[in-house]
Design a protein around this nucleic acid. Structure first.
Length: 269
DNA sequence: CTGCCATTC
DNA sequence: GAATGGCAG
């Protein structure tokens, strides 16, 4: 071969090799060790996880939860939403599956069928569109709660979208969310899945110098009120749930952040 | 985006 | 249950 062809050929081979790696090798690396939902990670980034009042914390690949068997749902679901994870992939919605990682088995989706309530995601599917695996992992019944459709598609959806906006503005946020299980409006299905009377969501931003935290408490009713009118303190949610949020924070900082109802640092655009 | 339901196989 | 299509906020 003539020497003058060597360099272009090398470039082409390297390019093809790189493209191949991008398409196949990365996918392989990204695969779970076992099927979605099966894996319980040995450890996770637990520096932001709340305490469990039920003693059953489950770690999935892209979120963690504390399961309450009497309520047949999680008392909290916690995850980090990174700015780099914000994508729209339009994956096909799969069926909901019983979470095999929950010892007592999470509720079957049939409890929700014709109940009049939505299977409302706690970790939103829309927050996990960066990979098919991450998306499908949100369709475990340990990640859902009965929600009125107008609420889920309304004010709760608005809040979820605002969280995505904040993740884009503040280079990622940590999110903890769940229903206030002590106050139930009723139950649905044979397994008596608790229908919470209200829901909370806590957003924590430690990306910049300005560490901040914001908590929302929403009655389980659709509302057209602005999101900031649902702001409360983490302390208040701790009183209602018995959960200790962000116990890993240095006490002085934790006390300050969790007592605050100040939302002036958060953009409600 | 958040979802449910009916039809057909 | 899978696939399709319609509907609603």
């Amino acid at each position: 071969m003539q020497r003058k062809y060597l360099y272009p050929l090398l470039v082409i081979l390297l390019t093809l090799g790189y493209l191949f790696f991008e398409k196949y090798a990365n996918e392989k690396l990204d695969q779970p060790i076992v099927e979605a939902g099966m894996e319980v990670k040995e450890h996770t980034n637990d520096y932001f996880l709340p305490t469990s009042t039920t003693g059953q914390i489950v770690h999935h690949n892209y979120y963690s939860l504390s399961y309450s068997e009497p309520d047949e749902q999680a008392e909290w679901v916690a995850y980090e939403l990174k700015k780099s994870q914000l994508k729209n992939s339009d994956f096909e919605r799969p069926y909901f599956e019983v979470d095999p990682a929950v010892k007592t088995k999470s509720a079957h989706w049939r409890n929700y069928k014709k109940s009049g309530y939505d299977r409302g995601h706690l970790c939103p599917a829309g927050d996990r569109e960066f990979s098919k695996q991450a998306y499908e992992e949100t369709f475990l019944t340990s990640n859902i709660t009965p929600q009125r459709h107008d609420f889920n598609a309304g004010v709760w959806n608005r809040l979820e979208q605002k969280v995505r906006y904040w993740a884009s503005q503040y280079d990622g946020v940590f999110v903890v969310t769940g229903g206030i299980l002590k106050d139930k409006i009723g139950t649905i299905g044979d397994e008596k899945v608790t229908v919470p009377e209200s829901f909370y969501k806590i957003v924590y931003d430690r990306s910049g110098d300005n560490i901040k935290m914001l908590a929302f408490l929403m009655n389980h009713v659709e509302s057209k009120k602005p999101l900031y009118s649902f702001v409360t303190s983490v302390d208040q949610i701790e009183k209602l749930t018995g959960i200790d949020f962000f116990p890993q924070l240095e006490d002085g900082l934790e006390d300050k952040l969790e007592a605050s109802m100040d939302y002036k640092e958060w953009s409600f655009r």
